[in-house]
Nucleic acid binder design. Structure first.
Lengths: 147, 147
DNA sequence: GCTTGACCTAAAGTTAGGTTTAGATATTAC
DNA sequence: GTAATATCTAAACCTAACTTTAGGTCAAGC
């Protein structure tokens, strides 16, 4: 059993954030002692790990709440929970793909500015054609420009 | 030369968003005609492409504004702009790495719920040990659990 | 000359996800 | 017993990035 202060340290989350999650209904398993003080147990910590994961995957608090609620209901909601994770998987895969395109654009810009800094001016590189680029850079450029 | 309505369609951005970007100083090259109507040219469109890219990479409007301002100043700011893109490159690479860890966690959960749905209950799988997991799933689990 | 449609502005409103404040209670240390 | 420390609550506040509203201008078509 842990106090809110201990959990705050463990997860590196501010105390008000933990209270906020509780208020929003994300911590179903959270119990209180006789003087209304929150007592976090292993189940609550596991819930927090899942919350952190789902948050980082871009899910909104209200949808995480929905999921936590399904968990509380029990086996009747297994299919919904499975589907949720399958959708989240697709969503993350798409986010990674998108970021890889953005990364190509940014890598192209890194090359561009390296050249510009070397030249001391942007003039020469500004109107470069595809043919004048090194092959690997051309690839970055093409990837990036059909975003 | 394009009107704000045309650009809105081309970029699939609401008109008020384009006005907002202009107001925030992201569109230095934007000119007006005699009756104060915005006229977008190729340079503005290229700026919008860069803005979209930087936004998707997680950069804030105020930092994009800073970058656009550097662009307007000219060759004196080349090193700053190069450094900005180099930092953004690292940031995106880290975002991708983080998402890949999250993805492993979510893939593990997909496997977990597939099994649970097959069983019709979460009971059996709930307390599964590392040894009882298939090797590839154990790998996902381990990757995910040192987030 | 009047209506329609696309543009304009400033200012207020919105949303998510917290964070801060103010005041109350309870346990521990001296 | 009293001071310090950690907890509690409700409610106000905050920030980013828009979005909506209300009212005004302007050129084209009838």
């Amino acid at each position: 059993m842990y106090t809110i202060g201990e959990v705050s340290e463990m997860f590196n989350l501010p105390i008000p954030t933990l209270r906020y999650y509780d208020k929003e209904g994300l911590l179903n398993d959270l119990k209180r002692d006789k003087s209304r003080i929150r007592k976090f147990n292993e189940k609550t910590l596991e819930a927090l790990r899942v919350i952190e994961c789902l948050k980082k995957s871009g899910m909104q608090i209200k949808d995480i709440k929905q999921f936590m609620h399904w968990c509380a209901i029990g086996d009747k909601t297994l299919i919904k929970r499975k589907e949720m994770f399958e959708n989240q998987k697709i969503s993350i895969e798409n986010q990674i793909k998108d970021l890889q395109k953005i990364l190509d654009m940014v890598k192209y810009k890194c090359w561009y500015y390296e050249k510009a800094v070397k030249d001391g001016t942007e003039k020469n590189i500004k109107n470069i054609t595809l043919e004048e680029m090194p092959k690997d850079i051309r690839k970055l450029y093409n990837n990036a420009h059909n975003i």
